[in-house]
């Protein structure tokens, strides 16, 4: 029965009966996906285009002057405050994505190669903390890293330090730690998926041909899992640059990021065009940075082979 059904092209009957163009398979597929597609188009693409348009306009108190200007971009790129915030945000998101991926890789490797029967359980275990309220996770890091926090009192209790350290909280490293934690699951999953796809017989072949574990890993496993590493990097790097909760709660003065400035332009300061220009600049630069990282990883993977 299955063989017969597989042999005949799907919907052959229907197509013969109604030969109109709208009944072809591509048209049906397109019709089916169109509500979701339109939703994303109207609520994502159009709004982003509106933001891009605003970035070329100026604001006079409550009205928007729609004559074309590059003034907002001049401010966004040359004013020291925005330039510094942007550089710092890019640096933080680079650090966070690097640490997240480097820390996640061994875990993904462990689950994929040594997880055995419990792969699903491991993955579930890793995703649970990610479902805790994001605000509360950040808050919890503040409790851990704070002056009277868990880490300080623990270190003092063990006699490592005599008075609480202020170096733990309200700086860039607190932001990096918190974000590295927040994005862990997003890095582990894509790397795990690509490691699962690595053909195990290739590794066996390398062993048979005399490659040691390290060489085998560097020449086969690592290059073949590079798509997962790239996906993880993109999924962490780009959204991280737009975070404003973590910098606000644990970053202190030195941890403020560009998203805090964007948020200010859209609320208190109420300069939409400048906020729009800051958003567009951030997006473009972080995308370029991500693209550069992807190119570097790809060529490294090619060289390794």
């Amino acid at each position: 029965m299955t063989a017969a059904a597989e042999g005949s092209p799907p919907l052959a009957l229907g197509r013969r009966r109604r030969s109109s163009l709208l009944q072809t398979e591509p048209a049906q597929g397109f019709a089916l996906i169109s509500p979701t597609f339109l939703y994303a188009l109207v609520l994502l693409v159009v709004p982003i285009l509106v933001v891009v348009a605003h970035s070329f306009w100026t604001q006079n108190y409550l009205t928007i002057d729609r004559s074309f200007t590059l003034e907002n971009y001049r401010v966004a790129l040359t004013e020291p405050i925005y330039r510094d915030l942007l550089m710092r945000s890019l640096w933080i998101s680079l650090l966070v994505s690097f640490f997240t991926v480097v820390m996640a890789y061994p875990i993904a490797y462990f689950i994929s190669f040594h997880g055995g029967q419990h792969k699903g359980l491991w993955l579930f275990l890793i995703t649970i903390p990610f479902w805790t309220s994001y605000l509360l996770r950040v808050m919890s890091w503040r409790v851990i890293l704070g002056y009277n926090g868990v880490l300080n009192s623990g270190l003092m209790g063990l006699g490592f330090i005599s008075e609480p350290s202020t170096a733990l909280l309200y700086n860039t490293s607190a932001v990096v730690i918190t974000l590295t934690h927040a994005w862990a699951a997003f890095a582990i999953l894509p790397i795990f998926v690509s490691l699962e796809k690595v053909d195990r017989s290739l590794i066996e072949a390398a062993t048979d041909l005399g490659d040691g574990p390290l060489r085998r890993f560097l020449r086969i496993t690592l290059p073949l899992s590079s798509p997962g590493v790239i996906a993880a990097l993109l999924i962490v790097m780009i959204p991280t640059v737009g975070d404003f909760v973590t910098p606000r709660l644990v970053g202190g003065k030195d941890g403020v990021m560009i998203a805090n400035a964007i948020q200010a332009q859209f609320s208190k300061a109420a300069n939409w065009p400048l906020g729009a220009a800051l958003s567009v600049t951030t997006m473009v630069i972080v995308t370029a940075m991500a693209a550069a990282a992807v190119l570097i990883i790809r060529s490294a993977a090619r060289l390794a082979r």
Partner: peptide
């Protein structure tokens, strides 16, 4: 939306 900075998605929708 999974790989876009959420603040930018939010701000764009707010503007519109």
């Amino acid at each position: 939306p999974l790989v876009l900075p959420e603040i930018i998605v939010a701000v764009s929708m707010l503007l519109v």
